[in-house]
Design a protein around this nucleic acid. Structure first.
Lengths: 198, 198
DNA sequence: TCACTACTGGAACGATCGTCCCACAAGTTT
DNA sequence: AAACTTGTGGGACGATCGTTCCAGTAGTGA
């Protein structure tokens, strides 16, 4: 075990965390070596030492953010989705993302858009969609049904971020109930391809 | 009629168009006075003459882009939606946005995210949602139903932009048919809040 | 014709950028 | 202890940034 490497890994992680705070505050555009270094309390050269280029730093930071979010959703929402009403749990998650965690949410969607331009970020960007699929798959018998739900969740968030006032649970819930249905599990085969209730 | 003003307005519009091309190519981060001026074929000071700051230029460019898109959607899609199968028409629109118009679509979603940080952009960002509402409202009797559709359209686009290969019409169509129903107009009152067919 | 306004475009300012260089400290291995 | 690897951090390079200044051109109204 090398004490130097351990300390290095710690510092590397601190730089990534600082980068995420900068993105939350100023957006991806605000990420520079100097700003990140100041935020992390390390000399400017530390960021270039651990990340060969600014692009590498961005990829690392946003990949980490995606992983953090995924594990959080898996922990919290996964539990909530299985024990509570699904639509209500999802509405809570959305309201939380649009309200208290708004800055972080904006940062995460900037990841999505950055991934559209930089292939290196795409696996990380897609991963949260896959996680949502895992979370929601068992709620649906129909492929189109949960693709619609997942897409709608993203769309509702994008919509919420440009609202003057962050929407609340009550704004999300009707749409989610419409997509999921008031009951946790939807009935079986549905030849028409449309959701039904009861 | 002042020939100078007319020429000025023309040049102003050329600068905006050049800005949009730069955004398509390099993203919002790539927009600088010098780059835009070079793209437009005007001296650097022209961009500062017509737009007091770089921020003003961004607001003007992205507002214009939103308006252009809105009028295009109103013209093309409005016609298609009324004369053809709605789901198919929307699927075409999405495939077009994710494929040939991919760069422009990315630019438009960067507008959305920028609007999350800058209130000046929010009206322009919200306008396209309102237009979609106008386009889709008559297809639905239920508020939640078309809110779900509009959100899903956004979500499908965000998802499509991080895919390695642009999805085609056949990828979008099942989801849209699920949300709209195979027929253009849905049946009347629907107490359960879920869409039904026939 | 002449003051006036709208527009043009070159030059330059200070600031900040990404990145490199290199001397040095700290920790590990032999 | 000596030789090494790994991490540290100050300083500086050239480039580019947003923005300002200002002399000059062209079109307009009196």
């Amino acid at each position: 075990m090398d004490g130097r490497r351990a300390k290095g890994e710690r510092r590397r992680r601190e730089i990534i965390d600082a980068t995420l705070r900068v993105i939350e505050r100023d957006g991806v555009a605000g990420v520079t070596h100097r700003v990140v270094a100041r935020e992390a309390g390390v000399p400017t050269t530390a960021t270039t030492y651990y990340f060969s280029s600014l692009d590498d730093l961005l990829v690392a930071a946003l990949t980490t953010a995606a992983e953090d979010y995924v594990s959080q959703v898996l922990g919290l929402a996964g539990e909530a989705l299985s024990t509570r009403d699904s639509a209500a749990a999802l509405a809570d998650l959305l309201a939380e993302s649009a309200g208290p965690r708004r800055g972080r949410t904006i940062a995460e969607y900037e990841l999505h858009l950055l991934a559209a331009r930089r292939p290196a970020l795409r696996p990380a960007a897609r991963r949260w969609i896959e996680v949502m699929r895992e979370l929601c798959r068992e709620l649906f018998d129909d492929e189109a049904a949960f693709r619609a739900l997942i897409a709608a969740v993203d769309g509702l968030m994008v919509e919420a971020l440009v609202a003057d006032e962050p929407p609340g649970v009550e704004d999300f819930r009707p749409v989610l109930e419409y997509l999921i249905g008031p009951r946790t599990r939807l009935p079986g085969p549905n030849p028409s391809g449309s959701p039904t209730v009861e």
